Computed example of a mutant assay.
Amino acid sequence: MKAEFDPVTLATPFFILSIILEIVLARMGKAQARYEAKDTAVSLGMGLGSTVAGVFTAGLIFAATVWVYEHRLFTIPMTAIWAWVAIFLLEDLTYYVFHRVSHERRFWWASHVNHHSSQHYNLSTALRQTWTGGVAGTWLLWLPLAWLGFPPAMIAIQKGISLVYQYWIHTEAIRRLPRWFEAVFNTPSHHRVHHARNPLYLDKNYAGILIIWDRMFGTFQPELDEEPCRYGLVKNMATFNILRVAFHEWAGIVQDVVRHPRHALGYIFGPPGWSHDGSRETSAMIKARAAEAPAQPAGAIREAA
């Protein structure tokens, strides 16, 4: 029950060529894109490492999906058009849930944080993927699709399509698309907001392909011209050490649990930034503090960025 084709594998040459093209166009002044050699190397290294790490958990994930499928409620044919429409919507909703949980709970943020660690936003950033996603178990969220009756191959194909779609939205070269497209689909503008560390933009726009989920569940934020995106983490890492990029939040969890074992559950499953004594700030605290601060002139905001 293997996928007929892997969209990500097929798109890999396009990923490489498009990154090269974006760099060339930026050097020529034809496109807005910022690249830094060490930063790009980390992104590419994280992408390669993610592929290697996935090999070690692929068997478990595939076996679990097949087992659940064998106990399915219905048998959904891969040849039916309605089935592909259904899997498109349900898989995209699943991605939204996964992405939101990965930002709101520290255990899963530890696996996802590396994707947000670059202070640049370009096509190579899309390849800065986790090495620990399989261990974190976020793949469990997709098992209900197999239980409903979608074949594992169908689920894998749609997940691949979603990942390929999300690649091209990691760019500053595309500013705005037609309003109807921006209203329905995730776009570079929407995803720039998601990668921004501005208080206004924190924990917004979790969409995979369809931005409608964010609009429905109250997590949508448009990109504002008067609020330029500042990328990276709330506290950026001053290193290009790929091992620290991949594992620093896991190490932080271990340190916090060892120091404060009575509050272990909070440090593991609380929101990122949670602390038992309130000495650190969560996204909600940062947003609340920013909302209370007096507004800055647009020029001052741009200068700070």
Rank of each mutant, 00 (worst) to 15 (best):
W131I: 06
L44S: 08
L200K: 06
L148V: 11
S102V: 10
F98S: 13
V66Q: 14
W67G: 04
F269W: 14
H195L: 13
L163I: 11
H115V: 02
M237I: 15
I212P: 01
I253Q: 08
T65I: 04
L44F: 11
D277I: 09
S102I: 08
S117K: 04
L73I: 15
N114V: 15
V24R: 12
S162P: 00
Q129H: 13
L73E: 11
I61P: 02
V85L: 15
T12S: 13
G149H: 02
S117A: 15
R259S: 15
V52L: 14
A58W: 09
E22F: 01
A26Q: 11
Q119L: 07
G49V: 04
N241A: 07
H276F: 12
Y231K: 09
E22K: 01
D256F: 05
I209S: 05
I76S: 08
L10R: 03
Y95D: 10
Y206M: 04
R215D: 02
M46V: 05
P178Y: 03
P152D: 06
S283C: 08
A37D: 06
V234T: 15
T79S: 15
S275I: 06
V55I: 14
M285L: 10
M237L: 15
I212W: 04
F150S: 01
I61D: 02
L210Q: 06
